[in-house]
Design a protein around this nucleic acid. Structure first.
Lengths: 122, 122
DNA sequence: GTTAGCGCTAACCTTAAAGTAACTGCCTGA
DNA sequence: TCAGGCAGTTACTTTAAGGTTAGCGCTAAC
């Protein structure tokens, strides 16, 4: 990550580029659940129902849709094993998810900091 | 920012904490325009109409609502000057916006990288 | 043979975010 | 005095994201 700061002056063009790039990010990984699904998979592959439990509140419909979307975009892989003639499906992170490390960790850090600040305000 | 990686193993509790913290972040700065408004203000204060032009596509209604929200959360300040008996309003970033530096820069970097990748795929 | 779990899907509904269009009050400059 | 800009607001509509409920095909356990 660059050693940049919002305080540093920036050209108008850089500013426009940044607005667009952030917009592109939000388009792909925005929404309530996408990043959370990726985080939930970061400590190992999980089955559909395990994921649903780990995410606490997501509906099967949304989880299913988002997983398909994440698969399409190369973040996640669906693995189907048919051991003992029984269906077993697992979801696993792909390499491309690791490119989101900085995004996820900065959002994690900021959310943690902000919550602390909000709570000490009262 | 921590030198962490999504590849590193993480405990279940850390994973839950992270899911929640990222959720908290998205709750405050999620949405289509909030971060973009902050970026647009990062190279100097702007007036309402200047902002609207800089953001290319935002409606006055949404800009007005989001600015109020950003003000409430301490990211932005509304300055009203009455020079020459003429109303002049400017919006300016507050210190607290600078805590978003890492978030914004990582989203900028990722969005740029991702777009490049998508475009070279075709 | 009924119940329960898994991995979904379909149909439907609700809500919230965002967009549209029109308009207001105030001022300035032609 | 009339057009036009600024800084919005209001009322209404659209869209899309997400939630709810029910159920399917399969298997295994009771």
């Amino acid at each position: 990550m660059h050693e940049c700061n919002l305080k540093d002056p920036i050209s108008d063009q850089q500013c426009v580029d940044m607005i667009n790039a952030v917009g592109d990010s939000l388009y792909v990984i925005g929404g309530k659940w996408k990043l959370r699904i990726i985080i939930a998979l970061s400590n190992g592959k999980k089955r559909f129902n395990e994921l649903q439990k780990a995410l606490n509140g997501i509906s099967a419909r949304v989880l299913s849709n988002d997983l398909k979307d994440l698969e399409l975009n190369g973040f996640v892989r669906r693995i189907e094993r048919s051991e003992s003639s029984n269906l077993l499906v697992e979801y696993e992170l792909l390499e491309y998810s690791h490119t989101l490390t900085n995004v996820i960790f900065s959002l994690n850090e900021w959310g943690t900091m902000h919550k602390k600040k909000i709570m000490h305000k009262d």
